[in-house]
Design a protein around this nucleic acid. Sequence first.
DNA 1: CGCTATATGTAGTGGGTGCTACAGTACCCG
DNA 2: CGGGTACTGTAGCACCCACTACATATAGCG
Lengths: 185, 185
Amino acid sequence: MSRREMLAEQVTDYVLEHGIIGLSLRPLAAALGTSDRMLVYHFGTRDALVAEAIELSNARSVGVLRGLRAVRSVRAGVLALWQVMSDPQVDRCQRVYAQAAALGLLGREPFADTVRRSNAEWMRAVADYLRSCGASPGRVQRIARLVDATMMGLQLDLSVEDSDGVERAIRDLARTAQRISDKAA
Amino acid sequence: MSRREMLAEQVTDYVLEHGIIGLSLRPLAAALGTSDRMLVYHFGTRDALVAEAIELSNARSVGVLRGLRAVRSVRAGVLALWQVMSDPQVDRCQRVYAQAAALGLLGREPFADTVRRSNAEWMRAVADYLRSCGASPGRVQRIARLVDATMMGLQLDLSVEDSDGVERAIRDLARTAQRISDKAA
DNA sequence: CGCTATATGTAGTGGGTGCTACAGTACCCG
DNA sequence: CGGGTACTGTAGCACCCACTACATATAGCG
């Protein structure tokens, strides 16, 4: 494992903890026991660093999701998915993704491609998992999109207020997903 | 209309255009034809300015929603809601909200209360609208939460990639909302 | 040994940041 | 007219930013 790779992992840890929005090199470097000089040396640019951290963060959450074993129904699969999303590891990754999306929203940052690719990979993993739970192959994309969007929105809500209606919403979502998979539109 | 109020409106316009994430006083002031000196004079602090812009932005989108006339069914109401959310005016407000939430996600900014209140007000407006469309009063909160979260997630998705599955997801959501309203859980 | 590539420390540059001190100006009320 | 109040321009402070120039250390390899 090269020095650069090690640093990239550490940077990702830091980013998962502190977010990417106000990230600046000097505090980051200090927390890692190195200097901004080194970060720029290894990664070339702050933006490149952040992009790499986003990719690694996404890879981690995809990894967790890929390791999830299938359950018997789509409905149960959605509930299992929500548990994964609530796992602190994955949760933090999703929040980084939300920040990246929020930053990209107004086209300010040049990470559009990175975020797009990460999201596509994540969506693929979600769809694959739901398929392995028995979701209709012809409708799994449609289900995955609905499930992913709703969970993202609920997570945003959760960070704003600890709302109790979230569990209920997840159950509604799970039932809907099951229904879409079962019968024709 | 006091000078301060006029400035606040202009600031809100600017924020809806440029977001709140990297907002800095000098470019903002320049765009408004004034100076950072003035902004600080009228609002006291950059953070206070941003908080006020968030509130005004939210007030605008709530205003649009409150002006929406009821339709005959929950299902149609959800579709109408999505149209409102897709309106550039409201869309931008929601994006500002997403940015605020993303900022608040990791507790970095002191706007937690502002965002919380704004969100509560918005959720109330959504619930009121759905109720006026005939949603079961006992379940309207539950429906509103699901609808709002899903739409927020879909909007985030839309900003990342112009995904075509979104309309489909909205229709699925509308049908689900109708079903929840109609029959017991 | 010497040479080269990788890694690191020191110090700095130019620029942007929020915010302030101070000195006004314009206007309304008495 | 005099005096307060609302507003504005100029200049600057102290700080943080990403990034760089330059010198240096260390290690592998012939």
